[in-house]
């Protein structure tokens, strides 16, 4: 088995103009899993919880209190988006660790590949996050206040504003590349270690990847949340 590092996702086929890559396929799998699990969880939701409901209640309660601590009264609006980021990335990362990923091939291409080892996916998420963040800022502040965040008549602050605009672009880049880099590196490490000796030795790395997968999901969620909260707050009068 040759160990090659490919940055691009492999295209399995075309659906109209949409190239179905292996990462896109896995992202659909993750979606289906998440949707099924959530429907099963809340199919017969009870006040006295049990099983899956307990688990999701715990996750959602922890997530909600975290969002509430930062966003206060806007928690209800921010929570679904932020939580979906978390669950989507977490499930994607963990699913990417399952056996069969990168080993099952289809037309001599790996059929499955961890979602976030494809920059398309992470960049898509980062763009969504950025658009949502700015959308909320516009909605909560109004156009004038929103523009005041970037442009002022004071030349020094005008410069600062421009810097901050650049910073907004950097946020997208950092969000997408952080996630992509971590997961992609994890994949490479796992493949490399497995190619050295496939038994026992990769185990610690798998543990590490589980932690990384969780941490990256949490980081993406927290950063998005913080950006949303910061940007939708009124501009402080004195800088």
């Amino acid at each position: 088995m040759e160990n090659h590092i490919v940055l691009e996702p492999e295209v399995l086929g075309y659906l109209g103009i949409l190239p179905v890559t292996n990462t896109l396929l896995v992202s659909w799998m993750v979606m289906v899993i998440l949707i099924l699990v959530s429907i099963i969880t809340t199919w017969k939701i009870k006040v006295i919880p049990s099983g899956l409901q307990n688990f999701f209640e715990y996750i959602i309660e922890v997530g909600y209190t975290t969002v509430e601590e930062l966003a206060h009264k806007r928690a209800k609006v921010f929570f679904p988006i932020v939580m979906t980021f978390f669950l989507y990335i977490l499930f994607g990362n963990l699913l990417g660790l399952f056996p069969g990923f990168a080993t099952i091939t289809y037309k001599s291409e790996p059929l499955l590949r961890s979602i976030n080892s494809d920059l398309n996916m992470t960049l898509g998420l980062a763009l969504t996050s950025a658009v949502a963040t700015h959308g909320f800022a516009l909605y909560y502040l109004g156009l004038v206040e929103y523009l005041k965040k970037w442009f002022t008549l004071n030349p020094i602050f005008l410069f600062v504003g421009i810097l901050e605009l650049v910073g907004e672009v950097t946020k997208i880049v950092s969000l997408s590349f952080r996630l992509f880099g971590n997961i992609f590196a994890g994949e490479v490490v796992l493949a490399t270690v497995a190619s050295i000796f496939a038994f026992i030795i990769p185990l610690p790395f798998y543990f590490l990847e589980i932690i990384v997968g969780f941490v990256q999901a949490a980081v993406f969620m927290m950063l998005t949340l913080v950006f949303m909260v910061l940007l939708s707050e009124k501009h402080a009068e004195q800088h």
Partner: peptide, 29 residues
């Protein structure tokens, strides 16, 4: 196209999870 696909994925997921997971669970809580 792939970026758009991912955004669409996310939006679908957001909508469905909001409807089937967050709302009922938060309500029960």
């Amino acid at each position: 196209v792939l970026l758009a696909a991912q955004v669409v994925n996310f939006l679908i997921l957001l909508f469905i999870l909001k409807r089937f997971l967050y709302k009922p669970v938060l309500k029960v809580l």
